[in-house]
């Protein structure tokens, strides 16, 4: 792909991802409604899709307030970090054989780096708010991220071993014969859980836990800054779905249909699965979350790593 093409495609991806995240806010509420035997937002426009526009209008026209006791510069900087980091993460996603922004040899590590940078948004938001609920939310998020990041990276190393490369395109190409979700089922399981925890989606949304911490790290945020946090969360959801589709479900590979369509179908199905998780599973307690991460998930990941390495060596002869 030429440089100009890559740049323009990158811009397109930014617009599409932000638009997708916006539509996802409505879609998620609609799906939650259906699964909880309600209707969900269905008033504005066909199926209520204009709810997105109404919400945006509301958030844009709200008073953009910075609390006087907050650390002003950090308070304003925090929500942008998550959006920027998540959008950068999209740079390495291969949408189809020739639709991608970057194809670097460290694509996977780049993705991991960007998700780990997104943590700062939550942390600094909580710290700068100068509010006890926000601080507790930030603390929880810091501990959660550090614990789950450890095996998030490790759970992907099985895939890297089987492929022999960090390049995401090479990983997809290596799944021509068999998707990695079969030999790496354990890796998929652990990465899925780490991914939810990393984007603090609902079963693991302890940083914001509305029942205990009012709204956690974004207690003091309103208007467009709050919208940035939400945008970042939904971008994270899409990004994690893209990565799971790429790493474990063969990315663009699939019969009959065009590659881009296959990719979109897989990502959509994964997003549906994440929303289903939100609809069905209650939030664990904080110590349960920590012990799940360190006592169950980390050993499982290490086991997966050892077994995969042994099998890979054995197959090589």
């Amino acid at each position: 792909m030429t440089e100009l093409g890559a740049i323009s495609f990158g811009l397109f991806i930014i617009v599409a991802a932000v638009g997708g995240a916006a539509v996802l806010t409505w879609f998620e509420r609609r799906m939650l409604g259906i699964w909880q035997d309600r209707y969900g937002p269905n008033r504005l426009g066909p199926f209520g899709i204009l709810q997105v526009a109404a919400d945006m209008l509301k958030l844009l026209t709200k008073d953009d307030w910075v609390p006087p006791f907050a650390d002003r510069a950090v308070f304003i900087f925090a929500p942008t970090a998550i959006v920027v980091a998540m959008l950068l993460g999209f740079a390495v996603v291969p949408f189809s054989p020739d639709l991608y922004v970057l194809d670097v040899n460290i694509g996977l590590l780049f993705f991991l780096g960007m998700t780990s940078l997104a943590v700062y948004s939550v942390l600094l938001g909580g710290l700068a708010s100068n509010n006890k609920y926000a601080l507790l939310g930030g603390l929880r998020s810091a501990a959660q991220m550090v614990s789950y990041e450890v095996f998030m990276g490790l759970s992907l190393m099985g895939v890297v071993m089987l492929t022999g490369s960090f390049s995401l395109r090479a990983i997809v190409e290596a799944q021509r014969d068999m998707w990695f979700c079969i030999p790496q089922a354990l890796g998929l399981f652990t990465f899925l859980i780490a991914g939810i925890a990393e984007s603090h989606r609902l079963p693991f949304d302890l940083p914001e836990a509305e029942h205990e911490l009012t709204a956690g790290f974004h207690t003091e945020y309103g208007g467009m800054k709050f919208a940035m946090f939400m945008l970042g969360e939904y971008l994270g959801l899409i990004l994690i779905s893209c990565m799971i589709a790429t790493l474990f479900f063969g990315g663009w590979l699939g019969p009959w249909l065009p590659p881009l369509l296959w990719f979109c179908i897989k990502v959509f199905a994964l997003i549906m699965f994440f929303i289903l998780l939100r609809a069905a599973i209650p939030r664990p307690r904080y110590d349960q979350l920590m012990s799940l991460g360190w006592k169950v998930m980390l050993p499982l990941t290490l086991l997966n790593l050892v077994v995969t390495g042994a099998v890979a060596l054995w197959l090589e002869g």
Binding site: W35, Q36, D37, R38, Y39, L276, A280, I281, V296
Partner: peptide, 28 residues
């Protein structure tokens, strides 16, 4: 542990079945 996992999967399946039930709420 395995029992817990099975229970979680069962929850997911039950909720998924609710895709096909009628809404309890009304269009007020």
């Amino acid at each position: 542990m395995l029992n817990g996992l099975r229970s979680q999967l069962q929850t997911l399946w039950t909720i998924l079945q609710h895709s096909f039930t009628r809404a309890e709420t009304v269009q007020y």
